[in-house]
Each structure stands twice: as C-alpha cells, then as structure tokens.
Design a protein around this nucleic acid. Structure first.
Lengths: 191, 191
DNA sequence: TACGTTTGCCTAATGGTCTTAGGCAAATTA
DNA sequence: TAATTTGCCTAAGACCATTAGGCAAACGTA
C-alpha cells in the first residue's frame, strides 16, 4: 500500500508555517486549504477536524522547542546553562511566534502526557542540578522557572514592555541574573 | 432623550458572565444573544462587532482586577503585601476564569493605554516601595513579578501542576517566599 | 396629555465557516 | 497488468458574523 501519514505531516508543517505568518488563532481549515491551493473539504482526509489540526501543530511546536532547549543546555551549567535555556525559549518565540503560541495550546490530559511536555520539565530539572537546591524545593523552582519564561515572553510579545524604558533586552538579562542569584540562595522553607 | 450606554454595559456584563461559564474564547455574538434570549442581529446596536465585544469584556476584567489588587495591598507592606497582591490575581483567576482570560486579550496600543493596564504597573511599583531596590532595578522587578503572576496562574489553570506532587498551593507560597527573599537581596547589576 | 425622538428589538439577506458524504482519476503495490 | 489506496474533487447542511431596513414601546418635552 502507499505510505500514509507522510501527507498528513506535510499538512501539519504547512499549518505551522501558516501560524507563524498569520497567528496560531487564525489557523483554520479554510485558511490552510487556501495556502495549500486545495479545497477546504480535501483537508479532512489528512486531519480529523479543526481542533485536531491545532493539536498536531501544538505537538510539533512542543517537540521543536524541546529540541532547541536540549541543544542549548548541552555542555553548560549554572548561570551559563540558565541563560542558554531561557534564550532558547525566547528566541524560538520570536522566530516562530505562531508555533510558540501553538505550544501553549490546551491539550487534554492524555495528549499532553504523550507530548514533549514532560521533556521540558525533565530538562528544567537537569538545569537545576547545577544549583544545590534542597530536593523538596526543586519542583517549586521548576515551576517558578516555567512561569517566568512563559510569562515574560508572553508579556513581551504582547508589547507590554515596549512602551517604556529600559529595554526589554536589558530587563531580560537582569532577570536572569536575579533568578541565578535566587537559585544559589534559595531561602529555607518556613514550614 | 432616553439614556444610552446603560444597555451596552449590561450586555458586556452578561458577556463577562458568559466568559466565566463557557470560556472567553467561546464568547461570540451568537452565543451571547442566546444567553440573553434575543436574536444575534439585535446585539449589533449595543456592540460594534465580535472584536469590540471581546475588547469591552477585557476592559471590564482589567478594571475589576485592578480594584481587587488595589484593595488587597491597602495598608500592607513587604512580604505581607506581596502575598496579598499575588493572591488577589490568583483568586480572581479561579473565581472568574473567563474574565481572567479576557484580561489577557491583546488590545491595540491606544486601547491598552486607556485601560486599567497602567494601573497594574503603578500598583506593582507601589508594592516594591516596601523593598529597597536600586531605582534602575525597579522596572526589572516589576516585569519579573508580572511575568511570574501571569505565568504561574496560566500554567496552573492549564493543569500543568496538578499531575505531580507537591501541591500547587505549596509551590505558590514557596515561590512567594523566594520572590520576597530575592527582592530583599536583589543582586547588583554586573553591567 | 399629546408629539416627536430614541431605543431595542425584529425579519431578511449575504457571504463566510466547518463538516460529512460520495465520486473519480492518478499513483502505488502485488 | 489488476487491484488497491490516495488525494483531490463537488455537493450539501448547519451555523456564524454582519448589514439593512422596519416597527412598536418607552421616553422627554411642550
């Protein structure tokens, strides 16, 4: 039989490109069909429906993002690794804004568990091994870093930092310095 | 003449309720008309179009959120104020998930400037006055706090923290402790 | 109270969306 | 070469956003 799946993958990849061009929210079967030069109905042999299309783009983005982050921290530790890791996220967001938005698409529990999502937590944990955190605090730190990276990039891309001095660039490095300092001096739990 | 505007406000308020019920993304003219028991076309005398409807809900949410945060920090300082402020955001997000999502709706620059958005930065700045940050670092700290609050709540509501120990509740207080500690020991800029 | 205006809804119509069903020619496999 | 699969198509149903034009009730005013 002729190979199946290959075509679907090409469709999803085109969807990811489209997301970067017009925004993830605007990616719809009709818009994607237009880009591909085919009729909308024809897409439904490759993708179950609009939600399925978005889910597949999200999975692709999560995978790509994990690959970039993984390459960034290889061979580094401490503040060096922290900066490389954080910049991997931020750079990806600026180079591929649509894909980055896709990576934040709400997946149902089962899909999320099978995605590259867990890889991201594992990498963050690996990053923290360069700091000597009490074991119980490690998860808290993972969650903090995830929150900061996601939150900062989202606000930055929304333009929240572009209408006042100092530059977002400057804040970003200062914040990474601050996080590095915090991780080296994590306060003892009060409980 | 009969008062104008009042009806539009009631429509927007209903839109905000609807957002909390079915999610901000799903709030559409047709859905809102259904909730109000009127025909979809009738909405267009109160609201310019779908985007305008969402914008107005976003403005309402930003205002409400600023009011809550403002009340929370009144008469407090230091770690006490930090916790109250942060909890105001998080509690609002859980009580009004749709409105909270609305508060993150991308507004165009002019609308954003006229919204309660700037009030949020000013409040965060007020909060930081309880810590002795070098003046140049204050903006960085404002941006860090905004990133953490937004990022944490978003990840938490997406369920990212609910499939592993420890509880999100615990991480939240530990992270607030860590931020408090960081603000009291903000590293000197290396540049 | 009576009159003109405004309001808040309506129906009708246009053009776009998502999705399913069924068909057909070309490419692939055996 | 014959059978199968693929990738597209057209057609059709249901829903959505938006505009235009109309009508009755509520309102402010004289």
């Amino acid at each position: 039989m002729a190979r199946a799946g290959l075509a679907a993958e090409r469709v999803v990849r085109a969807g990811a490109e489209l997301a970067d061009e017009i925004g993830f929210e605007q990616v719809t079967p009709s818009e994607l069909a237009r880009k591909l030069g085919i009729k909308t109905a024809s897409l439904y042999s490759h993708v179950k429906n609009a939600h399925d299309l978005k889910t597949r783009i999200a999975l692709l983005a999560l995978e790509e993002l994990a690959d970039q982050a993984s390459a960034a921290i290889a061979g580094r530790a401490g503040r060096d690794a922290l900066g490389a890791f954080a910049n991997a996220y931020r750079d990806y967001a600026f180079q591929h804004p649509g894909r980055f938005a896709a990576a934040r698409f709400r997946l149902d529990a089962a899909t999320a568990a099978a995605s590259a999502g867990p890889r991201h937590s594992r990498m963050t944990r690996a990053l923290l091994r360069g700091y000597d955190l009490p074991e119980l605090q490690e998860t808290h730190a993972v969650r903090l870093l995830g929150s900061v990276f996601n939150g900062y990039v989202e606000l930055e891309m929304a333009g929240s930092f572009s209408h006042s001095a100092p530059s977002s660039e400057e804040s970003w490095t200062e914040i990474l310095d601050a996080l590095d300092s915090l991780l080296r001096n994590w306060p003892a739990s009060s409980s």
